[in-house]
């Protein structure tokens, strides 16, 4: 059963009551909220996702609800993850980005059966690409553009690398876009669904793009990692450039992007080096999104590693 098989009202009632379990890739989230705008946005962004109405088990339990805290004039909400209630309250109108942040927090804190890297991941022709870069490097923007150009979205936030096989597991949740990227992608993907924009965030304005239906439906298909791109967005650049980079520094760079490398110990090291051995590694300098998509389409067509 998909979320869209419920009416919006049924979905809202369940979220406000016993909760609704949403399957996102390998994880089942039990979600509860009585905040109507958040419930509506969940219905909008997760319409294509499988749901379980009366789950006996969930990987993560996430609830977002109003709290009465000083200053009383502001409506505030708090997110709880599996009874973890020590997160700071936030203005209720920002419930959507905080909800998405909470789902990400679960993966970043608790998943230990994959090496979890902070990277956007997509697949084309069975081959996976990892887009790596600091906040603001344009991972999600490029990820959304590629997802709208024939690449299958795996995740705009995580690379879930399976130890020993090095396969990339898909998560395919809504893509978080910031500031000018929101309008850029609205113009680029006029038929896609966007959640409401939430302003006043530490990173500016945030809006979420519903993942393509095909990405959600094919979420159980893993991808073989083929390319690792360290993103270097240069607003003044006039062309896209792919520079091959050595594998050893790439490993060191990825360690800095890993959530659970230390916890996995030797398995984490073996997984990371195994991942990099499978991939062609590049520094990708770009400015224009059209050029970037074209360049990566060309890469996928001409540089598919034969492994």
């Amino acid at each position: 059963m998909k979320l869209r098989d419920l009416t919006a009202s049924e979905s809202r009632q369940r979220l406000a009551g016993a909760g609704l379990a949403i399957q996102t890739g390998p994880f089942l989230y039990s979600v509860r909220t009585a905040i109507s705008p958040l419930a509506s946005t969940i219905y909008q962004l997760y319409a294509d996702f499988p749901v379980v109405l009366d789950p006996t088990f969930a990987d993560f339990h996430v609830s977002v609800n109003r709290v009465r805290r000083w200053p009383w004039v502001f409506s505030q909400a708090v997110i709880q993850v599996g009874g973890h209630g020590s997160f700071n309250p936030f203005p209720t109108e920002r419930a959507i980005p905080y909800f998405e942040w909470g789902l990400n927090w679960c993966v970043s804190q608790y998943v230990q059966h994959h090496l979890v890297l902070h990277a956007a991941t997509l697949e084309r022709g069975g081959q996976g690409i990892l887009l790596v870069g600091p906040s603001g490097a344009g991972k999600s923007t490029l990820c959304a553009a590629l997802a709208g150009a024939g690449w299958r979205l795996l995740s705009d936030e995580f690379a879930l690398v399976t130890p020993r096989t090095y396969e990339l597991t898909a998560l395919a949740r809504p893509i978080s876009l910031k500031n000018e990227s929101i309008q850029l992608l609205r113009n680029r993907l006029p038929n896609s669904t966007f959640g409401p924009a939430s302003s006043g965030e530490p990173k500016g304005t945030i809006a979420h793009l519903r993942p393509p239906q095909a990405a959600v439906e094919q979420v159980t298909q893993t991808a073989r990692p083929a390319w690792i791109l360290l993103l270097d967005r240069q607003p003044e650049a006039t062309s896209c450039e792919l520079h091959t980079i050595a594998q050893a520094p790439t490993v060191m760079k990825l360690i800095g992007q890993a959530f659970n490398y230390c916890e996995l110990g030797k398995l984490g090291f073996a997984t990371l080096t195994g991942l990099v051995e499978l991939c062609a590694c590049y520094r990708f300098t770009y400015s224009d999104l059209d050029q970037a998509v074209q360049s990566l389409n060309h890469l996928a067509a001409s540089d598919a590693p034969s492994r």
Partner: peptide
């Protein structure tokens, strides 16, 4: 010491299991 060596091109990464430190 439990060390794992990984050689690529002219560079080596050493993983030190006790500290979970990785050295290039």
């Amino acid at each position: 010491s439990d060390l794992t060596w990984w050689h690529r091109d002219s560079q080596t990464i050493v993983y030190h299991a006790q500290s979970a430190d990785t050295h290039l």
